[in-house]
Each structure stands twice: as C-alpha cells, then as structure tokens.
C-alpha cells in the first residue's frame, strides 16, 4: 500500500468517525427535545447539542471534500452556524424570560452563587 493510499484511508476513517459522532449528538438532542419536561430544559437539548453535532458533521464533510472551494464553503457554513446558533438560543430564552414565562424549578427565586453551596442539598 502506498503512502497516498494510507493517507486516503486515514482521512476516510476520521471523516466517518467525526460524522457518526455528530449524528449521535444531533439525534440525542432531538430525543432530548421530545423527552425533557419544560421549555427551558428543552432549550438545552435543542439549541446547544446541535452546535457541536453540526460542527462535527461539517468537519467530516470537509475531510471528504475534494477541492479547496468546497472546503472553504463548508467552513463558512460551519462558522455561520457556530456564531448564530447560540445567539438564537439566547434570543428565544431571553424572549421567554422577558415575557414572564417561568421555568419549572424546585424553587424559583435564584440565589447568589456565594450562598448556593450551603443552601442546596444535592440529590
């Protein structure tokens, strides 16, 4: 087996591993959106697990792309998703919070971090 061939197989393996991991994250996020109890908890699954999953899938596609233009375009899409996805999540969360949508908590009143440690018995 020549060096170029080994390189090709290595790229293929990394690409498949990265895209499979991305698919697992995306599907786990989707299942979380169905299973979790209230809006704020669903937001964690939908908005954020997506970001890593999408980046991994795009990384895998970059590795299997042939020419530099496709790679650059895919990287650009990845950058756009990386910048806009958390912003959109924050926008939805902030809108819900400002509209008075209260999260489903054991106790709603948030405490300051310094007295959080002694106040909370971990389950």
């Amino acid at each position: 087996m020549s060096g170029a061939e080994i390189w090709h197989h290595l790229l293929f393996a990394i690409s498949v591993a990265s895209m499979s991991a991305g698919l697992v994250f995306v599907l786990a996020g989707a299942i979380g959106v169905i299973r979790l109890p209230d809006f704020y908890t669903r937001m964690h699954a939908a908005g954020v697990t997506d970001t890593l999953g999408a980046e991994l899938v795009i990384l895998g596609l970059i590795l299997q792309a042939g020419d530099w233009q496709t790679m650059a375009k895919l990287a650009l899409v990845g950058l756009l998703l990386f910048l806009t996805s958390p912003t959109a999540t924050h926008a939805v969360a902030n809108a819900a919070h400002r509209a008075g949508h209260k999260p489903d908590l054991a106790h709603f009143k948030p405490s300051h971090p310094r007295d959080l440690a002694d106040e909370e018995g971990k389950a």
Partner: peptide
C-alpha cells in the same frame, strides 16, 4: 408554548442545513 415552537423551528432549520450539506 410559542417558544417551544420557535425553538423547534430554529432547530429544524439547523438540521435542514446539515441535510442539505
């Protein structure tokens, strides 16, 4: 709630992008 729907629409869009790629 409305916000669930907005969140789902946004997430659906992300998945559509990945599907297109």
């Amino acid at each position: 709630t409305l916000y669930d729907r907005v969140l789902a629409a946004n997430s659906f869009g992300t998945k559509t992008i990945l599907f297109l790629l």
